[in-house]
Design a protein around this nucleic acid. Structure first.
Lengths: 210, 210
DNA sequence: GGAAAAATCACATAAATATGTTAAAATGTC
DNA sequence: GACATTTTAACATATTTATGTGATTTTTCC
């Protein structure tokens, strides 16, 4: 038996969901609420398997509700429900530990399937949402793996620069003369096409050299 | 009719897939190959709706194959197939535009459903993979929004430091005296608890201050 | 209107950095 | 062994940066 708690401000939709789920074998609604104002206590009280969470609600909204839930419970599966597939909300929800993201227009049969999918460790998403999620992956880390051919020693020195070491400190850290440090850094600047320490540090971060 | 091309080095598995798909209404296998050595031409030739792509293959493997496909075709849905849910491969595949990621042990009925799901814009994933993807979202941007209370002007100056400007350049950029730049930077160092330009730059990147 | 914070500028000085030139070992490769 | 690359190092010098101690003007906010 999959035990569900619902957060949804619209009374009709809330009732509809409850009837659908209670009317299906293997599913039962433990409770439903019209906002997340007391979500922490409610989740602790019922300890459901799945929570259906509307995003747009008066008072504490779905995203904040999700955060509060995750502060007290990382096990329960939380499926976000929304009318629009708003990019920013999707990202925020997944970042805060949502297990799935569904549009409200999802047909009832699919919804039940998705709920079950979530309990099995899946990440059910409406296809338009799934498309967005895939795009996020493609955008985020366009790791421009430019290779500047830094030698081992040069990489080491650059790492220390990034860590905030002065020439003097690097010299004593690596047991070499400060003039040698200078030499290395000069070479590093050439290879990275920069001419100051802070530019080199910035480039190291931007191009993920370390 | 959903038109499929298969890349899979194991002959048995390749044959099994082909028979399964060809034997199902609404699906047909256009071709199957045992490596990705000529993937670009093959995809252009068949222009399939869906490609099933094994990750581990001799010669050009699935990940490289995926990259080559995306260079010539961004429309075709590519589903990655693998025995293991290896974290790094999942990430690399999604980053390079895979549309889904399935374990080979996926039951035949599910597999057909997933293929269809992909054509409809979904992102079909085995639940263990889905779990990993969700975790990636939670890990990536742990935005430790530490607020160092930099003023507007200070933020501006820090930005220019990060961009590699010297004090002199900042002064002329902002139409202020170099001594004023010094004052701002001194204040910035205090607030960030650092005492050199490169440390400030590094901190700006680490804490995503800009 | 007055207190607090932010932004502006000046002068001084020690320390650190950038740049140039040069060159001897050490290491790796064909 | 010859060659290229890397690592090491010294010396010189101009520029930049870090730090201190003031002080004046704006802006903000109650």
């Amino acid at each position: 038996m999959i035990r569900v708690v619902i957060y949804e401000d619209n009374p009709q939709f809330r009732e509809g969901l409850t009837m659908l789920i209670n009317g299906s074998d293997g599913f039962s609604v433990l409770a439903s609420y019209k906002n997340c104002n007391n979500v922490a206590e409610e989740v602790e009280k019922w300890s459901p398997d799945v929570i259906l969470m509307d995003i747009n609600m008066p008072g504490t909204d779905g995203l904040e509700g999700l955060k509060k839930i995750r502060e007290v419970n990382t096990e329960v599966k939380v499926l976000m429900l929304t009318v629009f597939d708003d990019n920013k909300n999707v990202f925020e929800a997944l970042r805060n530990g949502a297990n799935g993201y569904l549009l409200k227009k999802t047909p009832p049969a699919k919804l039940l399937e998705y709920i079950q999918d979530a309990t099995l460790g899946g990440a059910p998403m409406t296809s338009s949402i799934a498309t967005q999620v895939l795009k996020m992956f493609q955008v985020i880390p366009q790791s421009k793996n430019q290779d500047y051919c830094l030698s081992e020693r040069e990489t080491e020195v650059l790492q220390l620069l990034v860590d905030g070491f002065s020439y003097k400190m690097i010299a004593s850290e690596l047991f070499i003369a400060i003039d040698t440090v200078r030499s290395h850094i000069k070479k590093i600047y050439e290879k990275l096409h920069v001419n100051s320490k802070s530019e080199a540090v910035a480039k190291a971060f931007k191009d993920k050299l370390l």
